[in-house]
C-alpha cells in the first residue's frame, strides 16, 4: 500500500455472482486519488463487472449478488450511500460513444440543467468549460447548436467525456473508451485522461497493453474473476511478480 497517496476506493473481499456464476472472486485492492488505474486481462475475466460495481451499475441487473465492501472516501457505497448520489460522484464513459441525438450544447448542458441550473449564462459557462477540459472546444465552438451525431467518433467520445465532466464527478470510469477510435482520436483521449487525473480519479479498462503502460499509474491484472496482480504500472510491465501476468503481457496466452 502507498501511504503517500489518498485512497479513493477501498475494496475488500469483493465477491460477485450472476446467478450461480461467480464473476469476481475475493477481490481486495485500493484505488488512489488523482491516479489512473488500468484494468487489464483477457475477455470475460471480469473487468467490466468490477468497474460497474464501483458505481453500482450492477444494481440495474437482476440476479446479481454481491458480498464484501467497497468504500469511497471511507463510506460504504452499498450501505451508506444512495445509488443516484453515488453515480453523481462516480460516472462512467462507455466503449461506444453515446451522445444524445441533440445539439452539442444540449448534450453538455443536459446534466447541469437536471441538477437545477437554469441561468443561460451559467450554463454557457459550464458548457464551454467542460468542452475545453475535454479538449474538444476548438473543434466544436462554431457548431455548438448542430447535432452531436454529426461529429466523428473520436469527437463524440470527447463530447461524452465533456458531458460527464459537466456533472463534476470525482471519479471517471472508462470501459475501453478508445477501442472504437482511430489512433489520432485515441491519442487525444489518452492525453486528455492524463490531463484530467490532476483533478479526478480515473479507472480505465483497456485491451490495449501499450495504452495501459502509457497512461496509467497502476495496473491491475484480472484472470477468471481473480485479481492476479496489482502494482505500479512500471513494475508490472517491467518486472511482474506473477508468472501468469508475465505470460499474459508478453503474449504467451490470451
Amino acid at each position: 500500500m502507498d501511504t503517500t497517496k489518498n485512497i479513493k476506493f477501498n475494496v475488500q473481499s469483493l465477491n460477485l455472482f450472476y446467478g450461480d456464476f461467480q464473476a469476481l472472486k475475493d477481490i481486495s485492492f485500493t484505488i488512489y486519488e488523482n491516479e489512473i488505474t488500468a484494468l487489464i486481462g483477457p475477455s470475460g475475466c471480469g473487468k467490466s463487472t468490477f468497474l460497474k460495481t464501483l458505481n453500482r451499475m450492477n444494481d440495474l441487473e437482476p440476479n446479481v449478488t454481491l458480498h464484501g465492501s467497497i468504500q469511497l472516501d471511507s463510506q460504504d457505497i452499498n450501505k451508506d450511500m444512495d445509488a443516484i448520489e453515488l453515480r453523481k460522484r462516480v460516472s462512467m464513459v462507455f466503449q461506444q460513444p453515446n451522445p444524445f441525438p441533440k445539439s452539442v450544447y444540449e448534450n453538455v448542458a443536459y446534466g447541469p440543467r437536471i441538477n437545477g441550473i437554469r441561468k443561460k449564462a451559467q450554463l454557457d459557462e459550464i458548457v464551454e468549460h467542460s468542452l475545453r477540459q475535454a479538449a474538444i472546444w476548438e473543434e466544436v465552438k462554431d457548431r455548438l447548436h448542430k447535432s452531436a451525431l454529426g461529429l466523428s467518433g473520436g469527437q463524440q467520445q470527447r463530447l461524452c467525456i465533456a458531458r460527464t465532466l459537466a456533472l463534476e464527478p470525482e471519479v471517471i470510469l472508462m470501459d475501453e473508451p478508445t477501442s472504437a477510435l482511430d489512433p489520432i482520436s485515441t491519442m487525444k483521449i489518452e492525453d486528455l485522461a492524463s490531463e484530467l487525473k490532476k483533478n479526478y480519479t480515473i479507472v480505465i479498462v483497456t485491451h490495449n497493453m501499450q495504452q495501459a503502460s502509457r497512461i496509467s499509474d497502476r495496473t491491475a491484472f484480472f484472470l477468471l474473476g481473480n485479481l492476479v496482480e496489482y502494482d505500479t504500472t512500471i513494475k508490472l510491465f517491467s518486472q511482474p511478480s506473477d508468472k501468469k501476468t508475465e505470460e499474459y503481457i508478453t503474449g504467451r496466452f490470451g
Partner: peptide, 9 residues
Amino acid sequence: EAPVASDWR
C-alpha cells in the same frame, strides 16, 4: 512488438 517484462529485459 513493444516487448515488455522479461522479453524487454
